[in-house]
Nucleic acid binder design. Structure first.
Lengths: 213, 213
DNA sequence: GGATTAATGTACGAACTAGTACGTTCACGT
DNA sequence: ACGTGAACGTACTAGTTCGTACATTAATCC
């Protein structure tokens, strides 16, 4: 009998250790920000030690970049859900907006990481070759839909990136600014009772803008 | 001759020292975030010493709260500019949106502080009696305008706070997320060449939503 | 099965950071 | 002119935080 070979019972597992660290680090960075996050704290929550963080990632900054890369790669999953080809432009656009809305709501850690990275002037994102060129997959589908609507004489001429910005700003704001908004206005933008209202409102907002006479 | 009396040449000046510290602290906190900001760094950039920060403010956290309070109080200045009463609802709303747009662009430090405070879950904002109840002054005017437009049969029925959220999200996103947006899509949302386009687009967005058939 | 390398754990250090003890100087009333 | 308290400066400390030197154990290859 040579090796235990069954991957599941290996005591030492490069992939598992790495993934463990990355998951814990994501929570810590999303919670506390880059400067607020503590390497010792991440290590403590891990099933391994701080030594391993430096062994696999090199340091706090590289770990943070790895966290960003993993978080951004998750948004590619959105691409598969876009089934927009056989819908008429208005329905397709509403679906696209709703999907973005849902996706943001389902990934609050990601939104926080983006906010954090903006506080840092996106300096870490710029260091990552993987991320610096990455475009949002939703943008491609959006471009197609806008062109179809425009060709059909239903939509005004609009830059896809501008429309994407409107959708993003609405969805991001609802998550990223919920705490100050709540404190100032007393309204919880994430209250489940208002979720459908906000979701529908985004669709109206975009469609009304594009179809205004 | 009793006192030098001329306030300008006093070497010791409570107000000046306080204001100096506050101004420097605002830059430091807006730049680095709450945890990233360094008390020693603030002190170094001041014309006084770290001792005075603790003398006047008590500590890092109270200094940060004082910075927040001052920054928020500046937005009250917006209130005076709202000359909205004698315009027709559509023009008034466009003006209100444009004013918010301008105001956000003119106060990037404030936007950064809001982002930072959201990363901190608005825990410091909640501690301030001055701030926790403060509503945006633009909201009152917005409410009036929406009611006038609704009464005239020109606007749909819409919650003022929802409309405010749309305007804010657009204006805040343009500043708060400019770095990641630039890094991912290669577009600088603050490019002066695109400023008028974005400013007008916000007006269209809001008006088209409210006046959609 | 023994050598070699990959993976992991422990203990520590150097630098940083918020906050303070203590001493000093200036303004102002009388 | 002088006492008093407010305003200010220096030097320090206790605790934290990133990173690493060094030792150790498990897997893998022949």
């Amino acid at each position: 009998m040579a090796a235990p070979s069954s991957e599941a019972e290996r005591q030492r597992d490069k992939e598992r250790t790495r993934a463990d660290i990355l998951a814990v680090a994501t929570r810590e960075f999303a919670d506390k920000g880059y400067t607020g996050a503590r390497v010792d704290e991440i290590a403590a929550r891990t099933s391994t030690t701080k030594r391993m963080i430096y062994y696999y990632f090199g340091g706090k900054e590289q770990l943070y970049i790895a966290v960003l890369e993993q978080a951004y790669s998750a948004i590619r999953a959105l691409e598969q859900q876009l089934d927009v080809e056989h819908l008429d432009p208005e329905d397709a656009l509403r679906q696209l907006a709703a999907l973005t809305f849902d996706h943001h709501e389902a990934n609050p850690d990601f939104i926080r990481l983006v906010s954090i990275e903006n506080i840092e002037n996106a300096q870490h994102l710029a260091q990552s070759e993987i991320l610096s060129g990455l475009a949002d997959p939703a943008l491609g589908a959006l471009k197609v839909v806008l062109e179809r609507g425009r060709a059909a004489g239903r939509f005004r001429d609009a830059d896809p990136l501008d429309v994407h910005m409107v959708i993003s700003s609405y969805c991001v704001f609802r998550l990223a600014n919920r705490h100050t908004f709540q404190a100032i206005f007393g309204r919880d933008m994430l209250d489940p009772a208002r979720r459908e209202h906000y979701r529908a409102m985004l669709g109206d907002l975009v469609i009304d803008y594009l179809t205004a006479r």
